[in-house]
């Protein structure tokens, strides 16, 4: 059974005196069990709306969504989902231990089970040192750790994370990335939204790209990017200045670092010709690298021309 299935999911926001806003339009999505799915899109694309519908914070105006076959509006579905909102907020006057205990109670866990959950999660998320401090003074990274622990209370098989790495420093991001991989190893299904494409590329099995409330693509990253190369990089050394100038005239970009000259060519054939030229000019060919398209290149290509400008997120 698939972990998440949405059929024709849509959300239109209506407020008195304001025009209707269609945030999500006919979303058909299937997330398989045990996979890590990255949900990509700019601000306002509908990522958070989708997540909020899956976590029963918003009611869809069209379509349905299921978690392991259960309609997400039911309590049974909510038992299967652990949710980490973007920049999670908790009661500021509680300590991490009290917070986890509170959520354990909301899950209907008994005192012994709650104590076990604390032992397990405080160790996993390194909360022991801050167990008795109030959340009020916590940094973003610390809050994110508490948020992750809350999402894991009750050991749900599906984790839905909204921009889990947003606003974190490099160490915080790495920690979250490692946690995601650890959860994958524990056979959990992870669905997370992000605008940090490099992070998504590193941890996701599949991605979906949302543009203006519509899913424009979904698939495995390697399938989406395909086998085709985005060009060739020729790295050479021992070239005289005239040979470098001749190669520069045909390449897309050039960089010289230490003894090495790096030329990139969009056309692989031009790369081959350049490699032959290096050898003919008495230079030494150090590397010939195919340049793969990155997720970021792909993402930018998938955005409609009018969508490309502005800050991507």
């Amino acid at each position: 059974m698939d972990a998440i299935v949405t059929r024709g999911l849509g959300k239109v926001f209506k407020e008195i005196g304001k025009p209707k806003v269609r945030s999500l339009d006919s979303l058909d999505l299937t997330i398989r069990k045990h996979e890590v799915f990255g949900f990509l899109g700019r601000n306002g694309a509908g990522k958070t709306t989708t997540i909020k519908i899956l976590c029963s914070l918003l009611k869809p105006t069209a379509g349905e969504a299921f978690a392991f076959g259960e309609n997400v509006r039911t309590r049974r579905a909510r038992r299967l989902i652990g949710y980490l909102p973007e920049q999670p907020y908790f009661y500021e006057y509680l300590t991490p231990r009290e917070t986890l205990d509170f959520y354990g109670q909301l899950q209907g866990l008994g005192p012994a089970e709650r104590a076990r959950e604390w032992d397990k999660l405080s160790e996993m998320l390194d909360l022991r040192d801050i167990a008795a401090q109030r959340i009020k003074g916590f940094s973003k990274g610390m809050r994110q750790r508490v948020g992750f622990a809350v999402a894991l209370v009750g050991d749900p098989p599906l984790l839905i994370l909204d921009e889990p790495m947003s606003g974190l420093d490099p160490i915080g991001r790495r920690n979250i990335r490692e946690l995601i991989l650890r959860m994958r190893d524990e056979n959990k299904t992870l669905f997370f939204s992000s605008h940090v494409l490099a992070d998504v590329e590193q941890v996701c099995d599949r991605v979906g790209i949302l543009v203006k409330g519509r899913l424009v693509r979904q698939g495995r990253i390697d399938e989406l990017l395909g086998k085709k190369t985005a060009g060739v990089e020729v790295v050479a050394t021992g070239l005289d200045t005239s040979a470098v100038a001749a190669l520069k005239a045909t390449c897309e970009s050039h960089r010289a670092l230490d003894e090495l000259e790096r030329f990139t060519f969009a056309d692989p054939e031009a790369g081959n010709r350049a490699a032959r030229m290096v050898l003919e000019q008495g230079g030494k060919l150090v590397e010939l690298n195919p340049l793969r398209e990155t997720l970021e290149d792909y993402f930018m290509r998938e955005q409609r021309p009018d969508e490309r400008t502005g800050v991507m997120s």
């Binding site: 976590c55 914070l57 909510r78 989902i81």
Partner: peptide, 14 residues
Amino acid sequence: DKRTLYTIISQPMH
């Protein structure tokens, strides 16, 4: 307003 509700309403409770 403080978004503390997000993680509460998403729990298996009415």
